[in-house]
Design a protein around this nucleic acid. Structure first.
Lengths: 188, 188
DNA sequence: TTCCTGATTTGACTTTTGTCAAATTCTTCT
DNA sequence: AGAAGAATTTGACAAAAGTCAAATCAGGAA
């Protein structure tokens, strides 16, 4: 299991042996059952994780409504950007929508890797850049005025998501309510 | 001028002398007059820049309408994330809203710095994280359903922007049209 | 100052989306 | 299979935001 994530890092930049040894020691494999939480609002996020299998959702509470901010699946990196980097409690919840397997690094261990292994800074930078790019795409879609256009973007670019995610979560993710999403799907 | 940006990098992580020497050699100071372009749609973005003075706007064309995606000013990092990282032409335009002074690094020089100076990856990652966090805040605001709430977020967190930016640009940035923004400002 | 152009506001009306309530449909558990 | 609960759809209506046209305002150029 740990080898998968090491292979992934290796594909970004070839890892020195001592770094591989440290990773094997520090990377933790974790299993989340459906509906189990990886992070709860009010807690500090201590782990950056890579999803080996499964699907998670992150959301925050606006009044009584859950607003979904992200869906992440196999191959994705997941953490609460705010909480992990600032070391403060945030309002973000992360929960498994399916049984999920993660490779995780603790914040302290990550800092240790950055300090001891210059190459790991290269990897950290590239992964952060990828995450940034993903977020830009998300913002681009969210800025569309019409609810229909935002939905069609998912149909076109992430059709698999429609099979794996309940519509009530997709609706708040796309900034519309459930009934609107249902009606958009009905036309056609 | 170049010293400002080197001081900034130094504040993130102390720079070895050879890195400072390379930076002094590679960082280019550029001046943009109001309405001059830093990047035009259809071109590959070759520079990452830091704004020393001034204000720029990035936008793309949706049909005939300009959709503003970002306002960035003193202290901010600016590039087209998509085009700069993928080395492909994008749809993003970046234009100065005020006379602006930039410190820029060419893509190739940046890659050279990353390869030759591991410490610079640390800096690149931290800057990317900051940008990422800024973007998360932006998404958070955009996901608000009510146009009024999105505007009030600016009033509360970026009141200075209201003095520096024409409302027509602010409107598309906030995902509403000019008349709606004007009416929101009229209620009080 | 006066004119011109662009920025902003206002009005009348249309379209889109939200709200609330109820009906279906689908899943899961026994 | 049958029941309970969740997910999704549908209907009627209300609220929010968009559209188009016109008026007003503000800053710069002559």
């Amino acid at each position: 299991m740990v080898t998968h994530i090491i292979d992934y890092f290796n594909s970004i930049c070839s890892l020195p042996e001592e770094l591989v040894a440290d990773l094997e020691r520090l990377v933790v494999i974790r299993e989340l059952k459906k509906d189990e939480f990886l992070l709860k609002a009010g807690k500090v996020s201590n782990h950056a994780s890579w999803i080996l299998k499964g699907l998670v959702r992150s959301y925050y509470l606006k009044d009584t409504e859950e607003v979904t901010t992200k869906f992440l699946w196999e191959g994705a990196t997941i953490t609460s950007v705010f909480s992990f980097y600032t070391r403060k409690a945030g309002n973000e919840n992360i929960v498994a929508l399916e049984d999920t397997t993660l490779a995780s690094l603790h914040y302290d261990d990550l800092q240790y890797l950055y300090k001891e292994h210059p190459a790991f800074n290269y990897i950290g930078r590239v992964i952060t850049e990828k995450y940034l790019y993903m977020l830009e795409v998300e913002v681009y879609n969210l800025r569309k005025q019409k609810a229909e256009d935002r939905y069609q973007f998912i149909v076109k670019h992430l059709p698999g998501l429609l099979q794996r995610v309940p519509l009530k979560y997709l609706a708040t993710y796309l900034g519309m309510n459930l009934e609107t999403l249902s009606r958009i799907r009905a036309r056609r």
